[in-house]
Computed example of a mutant assay.
Amino acid sequence: MNVAFVSNVVYPFVKGGAEKRIHEIGKRLVANGHSVTIYGRHFWEGPEVITNNGIILRAVAPSTELYTGERRSITEALEFSTRLIPTLRHHIDDHDLVVASLFPYFPVLASKFTTLGTNTPLITTWHEVWLDYWEDYLEHLALFGKGVEYITAKTPHCSIAVSSVTADRLTEIGPSRDEIEIVPNGIDVDQIKSTQPVNDGFDILYAGRLIQDKNVDLLLEAFDQVAETAPNITLGIIGDGPERDSLKRQAQNLDHADRVTMLGFLKEYDDVIAHMRAADIFASPSTREGFGITFAEAMAADCTVIAAEHPESAASEVIDDAGFLASPTVDDITHVLERALSGDRPNTEPTTRAQRYDWNTVAEQAEQCYQQAINGDWK
């Protein structure tokens, strides 16, 4: 098969979850004898068309800033989508399939436009479905965000969701549940297992964005309570975000502030994994996770994972019985932390559960879905 991926950001020149997924699946498709092209922005040095890991990278727009403050730039997305149309349309007959990266939606709509009048199917991978979260993200422009998400969901295409939670949310505005395939996000299990742990690790670790939905404030309070009877335990917080300053103040005012370290954002992925490999417990009481890749990474690193049980989080689906769930309250997080610190292990070994998220397994599932779409056998 000849696959076209559409993504304004391209890994490894921009390092994020969605573009890494395309890269990992793409290079495995190439290894299986398929042809893969990524249509993106020109974030790399050299000519507009290059080959990286066997994948053809074709620039349709110059590199630019992706964010305006804390939010993705709408202007950037519109400009990229406008530039995408003539280039992809010119090459559309070369491809058996177009796979468009979802956020920020406009490239999906542009990709659909280029496939009109052809037999080339369009697939979109849904990492999250925001619905009412647009009110927090865009405030007075929330109706605009909801409208674009709704139009994208209603646009005819083959839908892949990274979790059942995301698929269920998608059905509220788009296709029926039996029309959606589930292909989870992936990790490199061997890379994680072979990473050397840091020498000065923490007993309990958090890694992720410092935003309200992650509930790091609850974790800090729970840790402070647990530290009353566990005098040697330590907590490390990896990440950055709009809640950073308030969380730093909170950490400094804890009774056991000397045992909490805010490490900030770690640029190198291996550095984050090295801390996971050194930790006994990975705790993230987030209540909004379309998938939750850090849970899979922590399981591969053989951490006891503690996550929040919440209808808008896929954590329970990702970890199943290979970790522990807590309600997003200080008391329950405290209780589960104490349980894990006492040596209680989950029913399924975390490393065993993590294997289902290895990129080789995920790429195989994706390849089957792509072939389904090409054959016209989508549900």
Rank of each mutant, 00 (worst) to 15 (best):
L219I: 06
R89Q: 12
A227L: 04
Q371G: 10
E70V: 11
I238G: 10
L247Y: 06
R21W: 09
N185D: 13
V3R: 10
T351A: 13
L116M: 13
D270I: 11
R288D: 10
E70H: 15
E70R: 15
S316V: 13
L102W: 09
D132F: 03
S81Q: 04
S246E: 09
H140W: 13
D132Y: 09
E221M: 11
E312W: 11
T75I: 13
L341P: 01
L219F: 02
R83Y: 07
D320W: 09
V318M: 08
L97W: 02
Y133D: 15
L141M: 14
A307F: 01
T118A: 00
S327C: 11
F265C: 05
F265A: 13
S164K: 14
Y11K: 12
L97R: 07
D200V: 04
E338V: 08
F5G: 03
W44V: 06
T234E: 04
G343S: 03
L122I: 05
A18Y: 02
D94G: 03
V165K: 11
R244D: 05
M276D: 07
E79W: 10
I92K: 00
F223D: 07
I22W: 02
K146F: 04
G236N: 01
V226Q: 03
A363E: 04
R28P: 05
N232R: 10
T37S: 09
T51W: 00
P62C: 07
T152W: 01
K379V: 12
T124P: 09
R277I: 01
L122R: 02
E268V: 05
R41P: 08
I306N: 05
R83V: 06
A153C: 05
D136M: 06
G236A: 09
E289Y: 01
A59T: 06
V318D: 09
E135T: 14
D168Q: 15
F106I: 14
A354I: 07
Y133K: 13
G26D: 03
N232P: 08
V198T: 12
V336M: 04
P104V: 02
G40Q: 06
V165S: 10
S111Y: 03
S284W: 02
R177P: 01
N360E: 14
H310Q: 06
A153T: 07
K15W: 04
E268T: 02
G17F: 02
T304L: 09
L131R: 12
T75H: 15
S316E: 15
S81W: 01
T234I: 00
